[in-house]
Design a protein around this nucleic acid. Sequence first.
DNA 1: ACTAATCTTAAAAAAACATTAAAATGCCAA
DNA 2: TTGGCATTTTAATGTTTTTTTAAGATTAGT
Lengths: 222, 222
Amino acid sequence: MKILIIEDDKILSDTIKQCVQKQYEVEQAFDGQEGVLYGEQDIYDVIILDLMLPMMSGYEVLAELRKNKIYTPILILTAKDGLDDKLKGFEDGADDYLVKPFEKEELLARIKAMIKRNNRTYIKDEIIFKNLKLDTKTRKAYIDNKEIMLQGKQFDMLEYLINYKNTIITKEQIFDKIWGFNSETTTNVVEVYASGIRKELKQYNYDKFFKTIRGVGYMLSE
Amino acid sequence: MKILIIEDDKILSDTIKQCVQKQYEVEQAFDGQEGVLYGEQDIYDVIILDLMLPMMSGYEVLAELRKNKIYTPILILTAKDGLDDKLKGFEDGADDYLVKPFEKEELLARIKAMIKRNNRTYIKDEIIFKNLKLDTKTRKAYIDNKEIMLQGKQFDMLEYLINYKNTIITKEQIFDKIWGFNSETTTNVVEVYASGIRKELKQYNYDKFFKTIRGVGYMLSE
DNA sequence: ACTAATCTTAAAAAAACATTAAAATGCCAA
DNA sequence: TTGGCATTTTAATGTTTTTTTAAGATTAGT
């Protein structure tokens, strides 16, 4: 596991390094240009990026990296009053934020979360939960290598749930993810689709893993 | 996550509610007095406050809340020409501004940012009291790594108590936090739930840590 | 021992969810 | 375009679980 710190303040950079070097390998860049250069190698698991940099702002670094198709998760460091930057940065594909000053524990927790998240979101063409396999290229699903039939949104929803297996996902999250934020329909469709997916899973006794957490949401769990 | 809207215009208030209720629990106050009353409960993650209110202005609400040591992040709504107000409000300890009319997206982004900024206590997914563990991701509870069964509000209540372990929490606080303080039911439900939680804890002799402080409330303490 | 507060229980009520089928919509090919 | 097919949405009904109520039992403090 490798982390890149892009931060011009040597003292802060070293402090961060201290925090994380027990668990990760660390490299440091001290200005934006250097940061892009390093980042483009695409060998890091997380990039910690300060927004306030000389020469080339953190914001530009972010844009440049994404332009070059580097999708390493980026954690942005920002001062307390940089709220607008914050919003702008989120739009531009930053993954998380940390407001200075911050706690060591919080930094570590966020890094951990980003790595975890990235592992799931990383575009795989095979998504697997036990013997249930989703092929995102052909959009076909299999249990024990036998195909089960899932129609469009059923496939999407199951994919989402597998990506977040062992985590409760609320109906609203599912709805927002699959139907889009301001869709007209009600969240009742989520229940309908849950039912449909269960019916398919049932053939191979996999419906038992598809759990309802009443008042909260759904979870795919072993 | 709970949000309080203090806004006398019923239509605007409801519109805001619509925007955010997918992601947050919402309560509404329709004048300043009511707003202070609600806000003082200190159970919200964000307060949305209109400056133009009958009887008691938004400033007074803000000042009153801060005087009572309520530091809930406050997002102020202000009309386009109220620029001076803006400066004044910032002095008085508002956290952010939004000029009417505004976009749903901007509102959501600012709320999100405020919560994040405020969150010194970042989202833990494990909450621990001795060998009692609550996993908020799966909403499962364990003692000595053996699962105990807690239904919805039981889980919430125990989570609350663990977060404030070794501190006496009144029944009213629990009630306000879990049920919302304008709920119809009586605080007797708290006792019912306390009883249910105890029953589960008893299996592992953990009920002894769940103490009743007669005339005051409950405490989880070693 | 008395009283007020709290505990416990179980039944009633209310939500939340599951399931289904029909209606609506969209899509493709003839 | 039009008909047929597949998917999506709506809506009604049935099921399950949680939540609330309420009343009697218990407990702690005086």
